[in-house]
Structure formats: structure tokens, C-alpha cells
Design a protein around this nucleic acid. Sequence first.
DNA 1: GCGATGTGCAACCATTTGTTGCGTGATCGG
DNA 2: CCGATCACGCAACAAATGGTTGCACATCGC
Lengths: 125, 125
Amino acid sequence: MSTVVDDDLWSAVGDPTRRRMLDLLLSDGSGTATSLSAQLPVTRQAVAKHLVVLDRVGLVHGSAAGREKQFRVDQAQLGRAVEQLANVGAAWDARLRRIKRIAETIQRQSTPPPPPRRGEKKGRK
Amino acid sequence: MSTVVDDDLWSAVGDPTRRRMLDLLLSDGSGTATSLSAQLPVTRQAVAKHLVVLDRVGLVHGSAAGREKQFRVDQAQLGRAVEQLANVGAAWDARLRRIKRIAETIQRQSTPPPPPRRGEKKGRK
DNA sequence: GCGATGTGCAACCATTTGTTGCGTGATCGG
DNA sequence: CCGATCACGCAACAAATGGTTGCACATCGC
């Protein structure tokens, strides 16, 4: 049925800048708002806000070290996010495949497709 | 190396409401702004705006039939979106697995984990 | 101690996501 | 044929998001 997804997690990785930040953190192992903004087309403050968002959903967490604040990716949580991506993708893929199969079957039987009977959808079940 | 994704496509499916709309359109085969809003916690106008967004990235297209406007999912485009989800997921998954493998290797060698040498990462431009 | 560097906070702007209200064209029941 | 509806589109508005600039404050190197 409807694939169950954590909307907060999903929209966290839905933002292109945050996705790149995760890529960078994975590449470099860790990073600060300043170091990340140096490799991105946005300012340090924008990066800092995104880090807050990512922290809120547990995808990263930061530790203060002197005047810097190093952030790292939480592998477990990112793994969960990857899992949800795969889930939704698989669900849609299955749907698409089934639709295609049904369409072919109908066409093979030369059965006219049932016209979508409008105006009476919601009352039934 | 960095997975190439179409940001517009991605953020189109990044919105939870739009994701549900796609689910509904896949389930029912087609739908109007009104019929979709009846099954969603948002108004018809909000749905209409989302349909514009989905139409812009080619995930759905609508055809006027009398006073109604029926929308259907574009299977090819949704397939492309699914592909990108799988790509990003696979890339992150590979990263996570490699990190875990390296961490285990280091620990097996009883090599003290290299302290995150801060302040010297960017010199290798 | 002092300048350079890194961070956090606040004000502000544009876009997105949602709402309500209204006008209009197509359809249906007399 | 004609009025009541039904579905739609457009516009104004509100809140949240993603971005900017500016400034105050802590810390590091010398």
C-alpha cells in the first residue's frame, strides 16, 4: 500500500544543498559550517541553518572543539534515509510495472478500457 | 563521482503532498484537483498548484474533458525519478559500507583512529 | 594584548506551500 | 431554455523555508 516514510527525514534529504553537504561530509569525514560553505555556492550562515535542520532529524551531529564546531554524518540515520529512498522507489517501480503489464493484457484482449466513472468515487468502498 | 541528479525532478518528489498525489494517481489511474483534494488534507487549490509543479517537471499531464481536467502520471518520467532515487541511495549506501569497512580494518590493526586533523583539510585543492 | 578567524544571532528578502474569496464556463434537472 | 451547481482559474494573503548581510562575541596565534 502507501509506502510509509518519515516526511521530516525525506524532506531533509530533499534539499539539493543539504544533499551536497552530506556528500561533502561523507567525503571529508567531518566539516564545519565554514569549511563546507567554502565548497558550496552559499554562505556560511545558510550552511549553518542547514546543519541545524540535519541535526534535528539526526542525520548529523556536531561537537564543539575550541572555537570550531565539527559535524559528522550519523551513519545509522543516513542508512535509514537510504532505506526509505529504496522503499519508495521500489513501490513506484512495482506500480509502474504492474500498470504496464495490465495495459498490455487489456490490449491483447481488445477489451475497451473501463471509462473512469466520475462523480461517484468517494461514497464507495 | 558525485551522483548527478535533476534537482527539479528531485524536489518535485521531495514534497510529501506531491508524493501522496502521485500515489493516488497511480492507484486510481487518473484524477482531478477536486477528486485528489477529497483524499488529501489540503484544499483543492493547493492540489492544483502542486499539479502545476508536477506538470512542469513532466511527472503528470492533464487533459480537459468537459468541465473537468483529468491528470495522469507520466510513467516514463516517474521511472526516471525512481532511477535517480536509486542512484543517490546506492551512492550513499556504498559510502556508508566503505566507511564501515575501513573503520573495522583500522580497529583490527589496533591502529589508533586518526584524530580528525582539523584546520588542514582544504589545502589539497 | 591584539589582530585574525570561527561562530551565533537578528533583520531582512524571495520563493514555496498553504489558505480564503470570487468570477466564470460547462453541465444537469426541471 | 434557464437557473442551480459543479469544477476550475485567478488574486490576495499568511506562514515557513532558503538565502543574504551585518554585527557581537569567543578563541587562537603571535
